[in-house]
């Protein structure tokens, strides 16, 4: 390789920054897909997935490549990965009793949900940063949140806690901030679009 080729490769390398892959993680029904849809709609005009009040609606990870976000005077392209909710238990009876689902469908949903959890965990090896979505109206100390944060810290993955559902009266983003003071916490309502500008600024700062 000649000197010119080496110089050219070096110069190109400077501009060819690896596309950062950002995983959206959290327990079921925290609003992960609603957030993924909000981000994707804001910057690509297209949603990423279907949402539902029934837990485990997202049972396969979905990836939207090259979502270019502009905020705080910067412009960065991310690959956004919406992952299935992580849980320690899945009982098909809950789908039947709480949501009136047909038993066969409920069993199938539960089976797919277990596979989704495994897939979400595997994705942790591939992402460069994480948006950890917590329901600001719920107890932040649930075991999934704590286990996930412990793993993200052990892997040294940049993490932003998204305190979602701040449009609800009972939401308390401050409780989340107090619970996990070592991580940036951004209050948002992915559904209503509140706080998204702050989230994009934080993404620019922590996922750069």
């Amino acid at each position: 390789m000649g000197l010119f080729d080496s110089l050219l490769k070096g110069l190109l390398g400077l501009f060819r920054k690896k596309q950062a892959s950002i995983g959206i993680y959290g327990p079921p029904n925290a609003g992960k897909t609603t957030l993924a849809n909000r981000i994707s709609r804001d910057w690509t005009g297209k949603p990423m997935g279907k949402t539902s009040e029934i837990p485990h609606e997202t049972r396969k990870a979905k990836e939207r490549k090259e979502v270019v976000i502009k905020a705080a005077g910067s412009r960065i392209s991310f690959d956004i990965v919406d992952t299935p909710g992580i849980a320690t238990k899945i009982d098909f009876h809950n789908f039947v009793e709480d949501y009136g689902m047909d038993e066969d469908k409920a069993k199938q949903r539960a089976k797919e949900a277990t596979e989704g959890v495994i897939e979400a965990i595997k994705w942790l090896d591939k992402v460069d940063g994480v948006l950890l979505v917590m329901d600001a109206a719920e107890d932040p100390f649930n075991q999934v949140n704590v286990t996930l944060l412990g793993n993200l810290e052990a892997r040294k993955l940049p993490t932003i806690i998204v305190a979602n559902k701040m449009d609800l009266d009972e939401a308390s983003p401050a409780t989340i901030r107090d619970a996990f003071p070592q991580h940036p916490t951004i209050p948002v309502s992915a559904l209503a679009g509140y706080g998204m500008d702050n989230l994009y600024k934080a993404m620019m700062k922590y996922f750069r």
């Binding site: 849980a87 959890v117 965990i121 075991q143 704590v146 286990t147 996930l148 412990g150 793993n151 810290e153």
Partner: peptide
Amino acid sequence: SSEELELI
């Protein structure tokens, strides 16, 4: 935490 994730 990594063992917990493995348990899950």
